[in-house]
Design a protein around this nucleic acid. Structure first.
Lengths: 356, 356
DNA sequence: CACGTCGATGTAATCGATTCCACGACCTCG
DNA sequence: CGAGGTCGTGGAATCGATTACATCGACGTG
């Protein structure tokens, strides 16, 4: 593959001049410029990004470590991250942790070795020393969706508290009293936070939340299935199951179906994270939607601010409840899907913060 | 960040010795080795992959350019690719083309500039000169799922011909005669191939396939919706709509639902590519499943063979029909989901190649 | 005892870019 | 007319690794 030397020889100038043309430095004669450009064209020359990075000590690359690529929420996040990064002149390398701390660390290490300019992380566990050290050592970093408490790193996330309260209000209004939750790992912020929000909302409505109604999942479908089976085996099974992510909701649906039960007649179902397919499941699933695209874009902007020396900002955006039929309410006619939120029904006006 | 020089100084040896220890070269004294290792530990040294790549002319990185990350099929493919690559000691950088040739070329160019060791591509269009040139120039390359005809590059894909025939047999058996297809872009091999397979199967059953029943989609949900609306507007709408990928099936479902029609009573639906959610849609969707994981792994193996000087092999694996209720047959009880194929029903034995 | 061999180590070239510094040509202004 | 400036250019150092080659001491052997 042709190098800058070849181009210089072909154009009859020095490598310095070639480099100047390529980085359009002002003081290059028109004559030299055209000769260099012609040589570049003739040789099909492309600058070696590896060499350039070594010299300039920047890769114009962002690392993104997410918990699970197979989760549509993260897929969408990854897409918006890449889009915004590209707009700002950066590439993105994605590392998929599959909810495994060891894999997460593997990817973080690889990315650090590659000297990425900055790191976007949605931590799988509460305290990877590797990540904490990297942050302290000055690696530009931003947490997205999940974060590690006690580390001085900006966090871009969405706050589901209000939406969870809306959900409980909705369920309460439909007459449900025994509500259960399939929680995510307590080691993740989203895992514990969603349970807390749920517990708080339940308390507001004077509803009990016995331990038996808090199932421990791991954000994967299989755990949703297992926990739901446990719920169904109880002497007094819950009337509603709220899954803390969309994959566990899928597992819950598997479990309910395996028993030959119907949603919502026999048991109601709701999920955190909205996905397009929820509109077409049997029945359509009530869910809490995050502004995923905006989250990804904000995270990239924060990280790039940090990298380029501007003060980065933490961002918290609200999630919102999208009511469908899986908890018992009659269906609304759905309007065409708007951009940011996948095809969905607006919560009925009466329900937004209608209570306390 | 500490460099190899710092380690050498700390350990009181030359950089050459440090390098030898790190790449465990045989002739290093036990004494030197321990001192170097101690220094590495003390400084928290990590080798700079950029510098190493520049010198060795290899990055131990594979590029993967896929057509659409938001498509679960490609997400799963990407995951299995990364997994296998990791097992073989390579990293993967994913480029998402969003079905746009310009974006595809952008990613290919970026990856080439980074001097990745090899490229896995699922081309968005039939003939990106950039890709063709790179292949001719000797860049190790393997096509996955889709390919560009006339280029001497191994192809790893699945053959859906038999499964499509099974599908048509199934539909014919259920009494359907007016079958329509939402095709993918003719510029993609999978786009045209699936239509051809469908056309051939229809011919076998003596069924006509009028042009009005061939809708032109682009593998995105929106096109599925649009095409389906067109079908429903026909004086004689089809009895079955077969979508050439899962996203267009989603769009088709949107369109059918918007008209207040029911699947399969008013119109039947089938899709190419199976995804977990198809089990829980209303109704569960009959689909053709590809062995996605195996495809990804085989592609990586072929590419790494090529990179490391072994002769690479093209691989073709069969897809298979998974019958559910969206075409009218009564449901079976579903067994627990096996590994490779997402939760699914086996086609009834009588249906496999039952005809002609 | 001298010489060849081998193991351990260091010196320096190299990969492909960027960029500081120096230099010559030419211009401008006092 | 000469001092000082600007412009275009090239030479060479540099980034952080790897590795060919040289060196040197110890040791075995004829």
């Amino acid at each position: 593959m042709a190098s800058i030397k070849d181009v210089a020889a072909e154009a009859g100038v020095s490598v310095a001049t070639v480099s100047r043309v390529l980085n359009d430095h002002p003081s290059v004669s028109e004559d030299a410029r055209t000769r260099v450009l012609a040589a570049v064209e003739a040789l099909g020359y492309r600058p070696n990004a590896v060499a350039r990075s070594l010299r300039t000590d920047q890769t114009r690359t962002l690392g993104l470590v997410i918990s699970d690529v197979l989760n549509p929420y993260f897929t969408e996040l990854a897409r918006s991250v890449e889009e915004e990064a590209r707009a700002l002149g950066y590439s993105v390398i994605i590392g998929n942790a599959d909810e495994r701390p060891d894999l997460q660390d593997h990817h973080v290490r690889t990315l650090l070795d590659r000297r990425i300019d900055g790191l976007l992380v949605s931590p799988t566990d509460g305290g990877s020393p590797l990540i904490v050290d990297a942050a302290r050592a000055g690696t530009p970093m931003v947490f997205v969706d999940r974060w590690i408490p006690g580390v001085d790193v900006p966090v871009v996330r969405s706050d589901g508290r209000a939406a969870v309260r809306d959900l409980v209000a909705h369920l309460h209004g439909l007459g449900h009293r025994r509500l259960a939750i399939i929680a995510g790992p307590a080691a993740t912020t989203t895992g514990s936070e969603r349970v807390e929000a749920f517990r708080a909302a339940m308390a507001e409505y004077g509803l009990p939340l016995p331990d038996a109604y808090i199932g421990q999942g791991d954000f994967q479908a299989e755990s949703g299935r297992r926990v739901t089976e446990g719920f169904l085996d109880l002497a007094e099974p819950p009337e509603v199951v709220f899954a803390a992510d969309n994959l566990m909701a899928l597992g819950a649906l598997d479990a309910v179906r395996a028993r030959g039960l119907r949603v919502p007649q026999d048991i109601a179902l709701a999920a955190f994270d909205d996905i397009r397919w929820f509109v077409h499941t049997d029945p359509p699933i009530t869910a809490i939607a995050q502004p995923t695209g905006e989250l990804g874009r904000a995270a990239v902007r924060a990280l790039v601010d940090r990298i380029e020396g501007r003060p980065p900002q933490s961002v918290t955006l609200p999630a919102r409840l999208v009511v469908r039929r899986s908890c018992g309410e009659p269906a609304h006619r759905e309007p065409p899907a708007p951009e940011e939120f996948p095809a969905s029904v607006e919560p009925s006006p009466a329900m937004n913060r209608s209570q306390t």
